[in-house]
Amino acid sequence: MLDPLPTDADSWTVQEGVSFTVLRNPLRTRIHVTGQGEQFYVPPHWHAAHDENHVVIEGRVMVTQDGVRRVVRPEDGVCFTQRGVVHSIESFPGEELILEETAMEPDDTEQKTFFFRNLGAPGMLKSPLGIMQVLYYGDTYPKLPIGFRWLELTLVVIVGGWIAPLFGYQLPDKRLRFNPSRFPRDKKD
Rank of each mutant, 00 (worst) to 15 (best):
S88T: 02
K112I: 10
L135Y: 04
V85S: 05
T109P: 10
E100P: 02
F92A: 11
Y136E: 02
V68W: 01
R117C: 06
L119M: 15
R70S: 15
F114N: 05
P122H: 08
V72R: 09
K143P: 00
K112C: 03
Q82S: 10
V71D: 13
D66I: 02
P128L: 07
G138W: 00
N118H: 08
E90P: 07
T81P: 01
C79Y: 11
D66R: 04
Y136C: 04
D139V: 04
M104Q: 12
I89V: 13
Q82R: 13
D108I: 01
V68R: 08
P74C: 14
V86P: 01
D108W: 08
D66G: 06
G67I: 03
V78W: 05
V71R: 09
K112Y: 11
F92R: 08
V68F: 02
T109M: 12
L97P: 15
P106L: 09
L125Q: 03
E95D: 15
T64V: 10
E58T: 14
T113V: 09
M124L: 09
T140P: 00
E75K: 11
M132W: 01
S88A: 10
L144G: 00
P93I: 03
C79I: 10
T109D: 10
Q111T: 05
P142Q: 11
E101W: 09
P128N: 03
P74I: 15
P142L: 13
S88L: 05
D76C: 11
G84M: 04
L135V: 02
H54I: 07
M124T: 01
T81I: 15
V63E: 00
Q133D: 04
S88Q: 04
L125V: 04
I57G: 14
P122N: 03
V71I: 15
M124C: 03
S127V: 01
F92D: 14
P106W: 13
M124E: 00
N118E: 04
V85L: 05
K143Y: 03
Y141D: 05
G59S: 14
E90S: 11
T109K: 09
T109W: 14
S91W: 08
G94H: 15
E96A: 15
E90I: 05
V61I: 12
E95K: 11
P106C: 10
